[in-house]
Structure formats: C-alpha cells, structure tokens
Lab assay of single mutants.
Amino acid sequence: MTYKAILNGKTLKGETTTEAVDAATAEKVFKQYANDNGVDGEWTYDDATKTFTVTE
C-alpha cells in the first residue's frame, strides 16, 4: 500500500511517499524522515487518503 506524507516544516516543505504494509509502519518511516530533515511538529493522519501531515 502506498502512503503519503505532507511536510509543512519551517525549513522543509514538500511531499514524499512510501510503500508499507500498514499505517503504523509508514508512520515510523515518515517520522524518521522528518527527524532526519529537522522537522518536528504536530502529526495527523487521514485514513481515507492514506496521508500523514506534519506541521511545525
């Protein structure tokens, strides 16, 4: 399944996708990606669109 992350960081804005077996696995991948890029904020998840959003 393909999951998407939308990054609304102070220094990084954009989107990325990952293939994962479930939302929990995708969330770990996206949170690591955000952390590696200095983005730390509030996370939300929309199951209907399989989209995570982080906003700083």
Rank of each mutant, 00 (worst) to 15 (best):
N37C: 13
T25N: 07
A24T: 09
K31N: 03
D40E: 13
T25G: 08
T44Q: 08
N8G: 04
D40M: 13
G41P: 02
A23W: 13
E56T: 07
K28I: 11
T49A: 06
D36W: 08
D36P: 01
G41Q: 02
A24N: 07
T2E: 08
V39M: 11
T16M: 15
E19M: 14
K31G: 02
A26P: 01
E15C: 15
L7N: 01
L12E: 05
A26Q: 00
E42D: 11
T2N: 06
G14H: 12
A23P: 10
A34K: 01
G14N: 07
E15D: 05
T18C: 15
N37T: 06
D40Q: 14
G14D: 10
T25I: 08
I6H: 05
T17M: 10
T55K: 06
A48N: 10
G38P: 00
E19G: 05
Y3N: 02
A26K: 01
A26H: 01
D46L: 04
N35W: 15
V29S: 05
D47G: 08
G38E: 06
L12F: 15
K13M: 09
T18H: 06
Y3P: 03
V54D: 00
K28M: 12
V54T: 02
T2K: 12
K50T: 03
T44F: 10
A34L: 06
D40P: 04
N8R: 12
A34E: 00
A34C: 12
A34D: 00
V21A: 13
V54P: 00
T44G: 06
T2I: 14
V21W: 12
E27C: 15
K28R: 12
A24S: 11
T49F: 05
T17Y: 14
I6K: 05
E27V: 07
T17E: 09
Y45Q: 01
G9I: 07
A23R: 12
T18G: 02
K10G: 07
A24V: 10
D36A: 13
T11W: 13
G14A: 14
E42N: 10
K4T: 12
Y3T: 02
A48Y: 10
K4W: 10
V29H: 11
E19L: 14
T55G: 05
T49Q: 06
D22N: 09
K50N: 07
N35R: 15
T2V: 14
V29N: 06
T17Q: 10
K13D: 04
K28Q: 11
D40G: 09
T44Y: 11
E19P: 05
T16I: 15
L7P: 01
T53I: 09
E42Y: 13
T25H: 12
Y3L: 03
N8E: 06
Y33Q: 04
T25A: 14
G41M: 04
I6L: 06
Q32V: 08
T51G: 00
E27S: 07
E42L: 12
F52N: 00
A5V: 15
D47E: 14
T16W: 15
K50I: 02
T11L: 12
E19F: 15
E42G: 05
K31T: 05
T51N: 01
E15G: 05
K10S: 10
D47A: 14
W43C: 03
F30W: 01
G38M: 06
G38A: 06
T18N: 03
V21S: 11
A48R: 11
I6G: 02
K4F: 12
D36F: 10
D47N: 09
N37S: 08
A20L: 01
M1C: 13
K31R: 15
T53S: 06
D47M: 10
K10W: 11
D40K: 13
K50R: 14
L12D: 04
E56V: 08
D22S: 07
D36C: 09
G14P: 03
A26I: 01
E15H: 10
V39Y: 09
D40H: 14
E19K: 13
I6F: 07
F30N: 00
K13Q: 12
A24Q: 12
T51Y: 02
F30I: 02
L7I: 15
K50D: 01
Q32L: 09
T11S: 11
V39I: 14
D22V: 01
K4H: 11
Q32F: 05
K4G: 03
A48H: 10
W43V: 03
T44A: 09
L7D: 01
K50E: 01
T53Q: 06
A5T: 04
E19T: 14
T11G: 11
T16G: 04
T53A: 05
T25Q: 12
G9E: 02
K28G: 08
V29F: 15
E42R: 09
V29E: 06
V21H: 12
L7R: 00
D46A: 04
A20V: 04
K31S: 04
D36M: 10
T18Q: 05
T49H: 05
Q32W: 05
E15N: 06
A23V: 11
T16L: 15
V39Q: 03
M1V: 13
T55L: 06
Q32E: 08
T16V: 15
T49D: 04
A20E: 04
K4V: 09
D36K: 09
M1Q: 14
G14I: 15
A5I: 15
V21R: 12
G41E: 00
G14T: 14
V29A: 08
A23Q: 11
L12I: 13
A23D: 05
T53H: 08
T16C: 15
T18F: 13
K50A: 06
G9L: 14
M1K: 12
G9K: 04
K4M: 07
E56Q: 10
A23S: 10
K31Q: 07
Y33V: 05
A23E: 07
D46F: 04
L12W: 15
V21C: 13
N35E: 14
A34R: 02
D47H: 11
T2M: 13
M1I: 14
E15F: 14
T49G: 04
A23I: 09
E56C: 07
Y33F: 11
F30K: 00
F30D: 00
A23K: 13
D36I: 11
T18W: 08
A48W: 07
K13A: 06
F52T: 00
E15L: 11
N37R: 14
K10H: 12
D46Y: 05
T44I: 09
D36N: 09
I6D: 03
L7M: 10
L12H: 13
T55I: 09
G38S: 06
F52H: 00
Q32D: 06
G41L: 04
T2C: 14
T51K: 02
D22C: 05
W43R: 01
E15K: 07
V21N: 11
G14C: 15
N37D: 03
G41S: 02
T17L: 09
A24F: 10
T53M: 09
V29T: 09
A5F: 15
D46R: 03
E27Y: 15
L7F: 15
T55H: 08
E15T: 13
T2S: 07
E19W: 15
T53N: 05
A5K: 01
V39C: 05
T2D: 04
E42I: 14
E27I: 11
Q32I: 10
T25L: 07
D47C: 08
A5M: 15
T51L: 04
V39W: 15
T17W: 14
K50Y: 09
T49Y: 05
V29R: 09
D46M: 04
F52P: 00
N8P: 04
F30M: 02
D46V: 05
L7A: 02
G9S: 09
N8F: 11
K50V: 03
K4Y: 13
G38N: 09
A48S: 11
I6M: 06
T17V: 09
N35C: 14
Y45F: 06
K4D: 03
E27R: 09
D36V: 08
N35M: 15
T44D: 08
Y33E: 02
N35V: 14
L7G: 02
T11M: 11
K50L: 11
E56R: 03
V21P: 15
N37K: 12
A24D: 10
G38Q: 07
A48Q: 10
E42F: 12
Y33L: 08
N8D: 10
D46K: 03
